[in-house]
């Protein structure tokens, strides 16, 4: 219910800055909803993405494009017909959906088809077949490991797309003429010192999440995002140039591709050792150890690509934002 209120507020508000903040809250709310629905892994991710990365990127873009949206009234457009048409469309789609839900199995019932068919094996056998307690990780990395390879490639594609859109000036050392170095949070000594302690902790936590994914919530994706968040914090405090000296974009680019390779070659290796693509059971003499090994390696690949991709996207955006400030 809170979600609906937030969403309506987002629809009404004209100040885009507020809208972004509200959508951050929206992300956090949906994350807590996911916890209530037992989806801890998803909640973890949604909190990192919906309340972290997404508003962050939005804010950086707002820095470039301006804060307020223009109301339709200012644009002098006869919108009545359009509005009625849109309302009809909404009602039609919404009505169809409500019609569709009538025959749906009741919420939460344990004998709904979704809980009965494929699911049973995941729950009852995955601890033995894969040997790890977190079923989400089992399904993610092994049963449906190929989807996850696809997911890694989606991030890779997006990073490439963002790179392609912002020309690769990113890779040439930027000019010293940027005066933004002095402003903002970089002057806050307290912040600097606190974050100096925090950043290593964040990075450490990322590694913990990375390797803990088999037992509790977590895994490559969450770890990648947290790692990226650590670096992003560093960037915000010490400036883009400094951060890019520490982690070179060209290295990131290679890492980003490298993560995909790790994942892909796991598949190829299992193919060469006689199994099907991404069949980890053949990686070691004991299938369960093989599964362990396979999941460990591919999660590493996921983590590397996600972290590198996210940082790369962030660098590209903040580079844009800074050069915008430099011009204005």
């Amino acid at each position: 219910m809170l979600l609906v209120i937030t969403a309506i507020a987002i629809a009404r508000v004209v100040d885009l800055f507020a809208a972004v903040m509200l959508s951050g809250i929206y992300g956090l709310l949906s994350a807590s909803f996911f916890v209530a629905m037992d989806a801890v892994d998803v909640a973890f991710t949604e909190a990192a993405v919906g309340a972290g990365i997404f508003p962050l990127l939005m804010l950086m873009v707002l820095g470039v494009t301006g804060r307020y949206e223009k109301l339709e009234a200012n644009l002098k457009k006869p919108a009545v017909v359009k509005k009625v048409a849109m309302l009809m469309l909404m009602l039609l789609t919404g009505g169809l959906l409500i019609f569709g839900t009538i025959d749906m199995p009741a919420f939460g019932s344990a004998d709904a088809p979704a809980q009965q068919h494929v699911n049973i094996r995941y729950i009852e056998q995955s601890p033995e077949e894969i040997g790890i307690p977190n079923m989400v990780t089992s399904v993610l990395a092994s049963y449906r490991g190929y989807d996850t390879l696809g997911e890694v490639l989606v991030i890779f594609t997006a990073a490439m797309g963002v790179l392609a859109l912002f020309s690769s000036q990113l890779f040439s050392p930027s000019k010293p003429s940027m005066q933004v170095e002095q402003g903002g949070m970089r002057d806050h000594h307290v912040l600097r010192i606190v974050s100096k302690i925090l950043i290593p902790l964040i990075l450490l936590f990322a590694f913990y999440v990375q390797f803990h994914g088999e037992y509790g919530p977590g895994g490559g994706f969450q770890a990648g995002v947290i790692f990226a968040a650590g670096i992003i914090l560093y960037t915000m405090l010490y400036g883009l140039n400094k951060a890019m000296e520490v982690i070179k974009p060209s290295v990131l680019r290679i890492l980003c591709a490298f993560g995909v390779f790790i994942y892909g070659s796991t598949g190829v290796v299992s193919m060469l050792s006689g199994g099907n693509f991404l069949d980890y059971s053949v990686l070691a003499s004991d299938p369960i150890i093989g599964q362990h090994l396979g999941i460990l390696v591919i999660e590493l690949g996921v983590g590397i690509t996600i972290a590198a991709g996210m940082i790369l996207i962030f660098f590209a955006f903040s580079h844009q934002a800074e050069s915008q400030l430099g011009e204005g």
């Binding site: 892994d41 991710t45 993405v49 995941y122 993610l140």
Partner: peptide, 17 residues
């Protein structure tokens, strides 16, 4: 059910991308 969780993990990543 873990399966929808897995699917949505993937979908969130697709969304942010």
């Amino acid at each position: 059910n873990p399966l929808p969780h897995v699917l949505i993990l993937t979908a969130i990543v697709v969304g942010i991308a």
